[in-house]
Every structure is written in structure tokens, then in C-alpha cells.
Design a protein around this nucleic acid. Structure first.
Length: 267
DNA sequence: TGTGCGCGACGGAGTCTTGT
DNA sequence: ACAAGACTCCGTCGCGCACA
């Protein structure tokens, strides 16, 4: 937060959705330009300290199975967003040759952040592989298909929920639906499958090469098709939710902000 | 226990489609 | 004709599985 105040070359305003900004680093950050940052969600150095205290209070309430009020829930969205984008934006400073390494780390850390928050609420939560038995017509187990999942939530040792934790859905949303479909097909049981995403925007170049805008990476057509024709997911949660996820009749039924997730697992 | 290999993480950049 | 939107592909790395 302090570095943003003092250490940047520039803050570039997005040409289309102007509440998004890109930070540009100085020489030590190779003059790199960061991922888009939503200024409506990102705290600054002045507001973060108070917000962080409030965030801890919110976690305490959730741990005691109390549903926080609206202001605290909004603060929760913004704190998680700020924490994760700080990581992402910092890693954007690495030289271009290390960008794929940075992407890997960004994703791993987001998974870990979400799991730490869940564990804080005294809920059993790990990542790992699930062995799903594949049976023939006579119910004989042929073999096990192993699935690695970001989020496995349990209660008294029993698996209760499978979660996908990604910074963006991009072209990977299909897999969540297919995994749920296959799981219920293979096991004849219905286990809730949910997904948690940070955002679904990326930087894009505009017609003028020195200017940047943002573009959405969420695929509404795929989401709706899978929801209707395969199986709906049991919850999809965003920090930085897209406008069409609120306005579209079908999307808004299935997609919510991330505070809804934490209120739900706390109950 | 050691080794090798396949897979999937993300986000920039590309192509294709739709809209004005 | 041009812009915006929708969707797809790619690169590099480390983890984890399979097998010896």
C-alpha cells in the first residue's frame, strides 16, 4: 500500500471502464504495467489499516456463526480483493521471462488465502486428490479416477463440499461443470460443487497502442448452457463481480459475491 | 526412495463473431 | 468500416503420479 503511494511511475486509467487502473512500475519493476485493479474494491494505505481490523472482526463473527451486517460484508469482499491483488500486482513487476512463474504463484497463493480464511472459521478444509471409483454394470469397481481439487471441505471427517478456487474463470469454467457431472455420475451421490473466483477481467490494448482498456473473460454462453443442459453448480462466488452477473436473469441466480460464500459455510 | 513425465496454473495476445 | 465482444490458444514452471 505504501509502495503504491510512493514507488510507482504512473497510474494508468482504463479507457473503457474507468474505475479500473493499471499501475506502472519504475526501472526496478522494468516499467511493467500491472493487471487491471478495480479502484472500487482496492483499499489504499489510508483505509487499509482500519479495514483490516474490521475484517478480523468479521471473521470472528463468522467463527461464532453470526452473519455480519452489510457494511462488514462489503469490507470482506474488498479486503480479500486487496490482499490478492497486492500479490498479483507485485508479481507483475517481474521481468517478462518470469511471467508464467508469477502466474503459477498468484494462483497458488489465492488458493491458500481462501483455505486459510476457511480454516480460521473452524471448518475442516484441505486441498488434495479425491479417488472416485468407476464401476461396471455389476457395481464392481473397475478402477479409481483421481481428481485433484483446490478445496475440500469436510465435517467430522466426511467430505461435504468440493470447491474450485481460481483467480479467473477464463476458458476453464467448463471443467467445473463437467467435474460435478462426472462425480455424481460415477458415485451416484450429489456432493455440492462450488467455484470461487477473484475476477474475470484482463488488460487489453486499444486502437491507440499507448492506451489500455479492460476486457471481460467470463464466458456467459458456456455458463448458461452448462447450467441448463448439464447441471447447475451449487454456488459461484466472485470478489470483483461483472455487471452482467447482476443484471442477467439466469446468471444472477447462480453467481454471487464472495461474502455469500463465507456466510454460507459459517452456517 | 529415486526418477521421469504429464498436466494444469494464469493472463496476454490472438482469432472469430456481432454490433453500430 | 471499425469497434467491441466472445472465445481460444500459448508459454513456462513445479507438483504429483506412476513405475522401477
Amino acid at each position: 500500500m505504501d509502495f503504491i503511494d510512493t514507488g510507482l511511475q504512473a497510474k494508468i486509467v482504463s479507457q473503457n471502464e474507468t474505475h479500473y487502473q493499471f499501475y506502472q512500475y519504475q526501472a526496478e519493476g522494468h516499467y511493467n504495467i500491472t493487471r487491471p485493479i478495480n479502484t472500487r474494491l482496492m483499499y489504499d494505505s489510508e483505509t487499509f489499516e482500519a479495514s483490516a481490523a474490521q475484517f478480523l472482526q468479521t471473521l470472528e463473527q463468522l467463527r461464532n456463526r453470526v452473519t455480519p451486517d452489510e457494511q462488514f460484508r462489503q469490507g470482506m469482499i474488498q479486503t480479500i480483493y486487496t490482499l490478492q491483488q497486492s500479490i498479483g500486482a507485485a508479481l507483475d513487476a517481474l521481468p517478462s521471462g518470469q511471467s508464467n512463474q508469477a502466474r503459477k504463484i498468484t494462483g497458488d497463493l489465492f488458493e491458500r488465502l481462501i483455505r486459510i480464511l476457511i480454516v480460521t472459521l473452524d471448518i475442516e478444509c484441505v486441498s488434495g486428490t479425491v479417488q472416485v471409483p468407476v464401476r461396471d454394470q455389476n457395481d464392481e469397481v473397475l478402477f479409481h479416477s483421481s481428481y485433484q481439487h483446490d478445496l475440500l471441505i469436510g465435517e467430522a471427517g466426511e467430505l461435504k463440499l468440493i470447491g474450485f478456487v481460481k483467480t479467473t474463470s477464463k476458458d476453464r469454467i467448463d471443467k467445473v461443470f463437467v467435474d460435478k457431472f462426472l462425480y455424481s455420475k460415477l458415485t451416484d451421490t450429489a456432493l455440492p460443487h462450488i467455484a470461487i473466483f477473484l475476477n474475470d477481467v484482463q488488460r487489453k490494448k486499444t486502437s491507440r497502442s499507448d492506451r489500455y482498456g479492460i476486457s471481460a473473460t467470463f464466458l456467459p454462453g458456456h455458463f448458461k448452457a452448462y447450467t441448463i443442459k448439464l447441471n447447475p453448480l451449487d454456488g459461484v462466488y466472485y470478489c470483483d463481480i461483472r455487471p452482467n452477473m447482476r443484471t442477467d436473469a439466469l446468471l444472477s441466480q447462480h453467481i454471487q459475491t464472495i461474502d455469500y460464500f463465507f456466510c454460507r459455510v459459517s452456517n
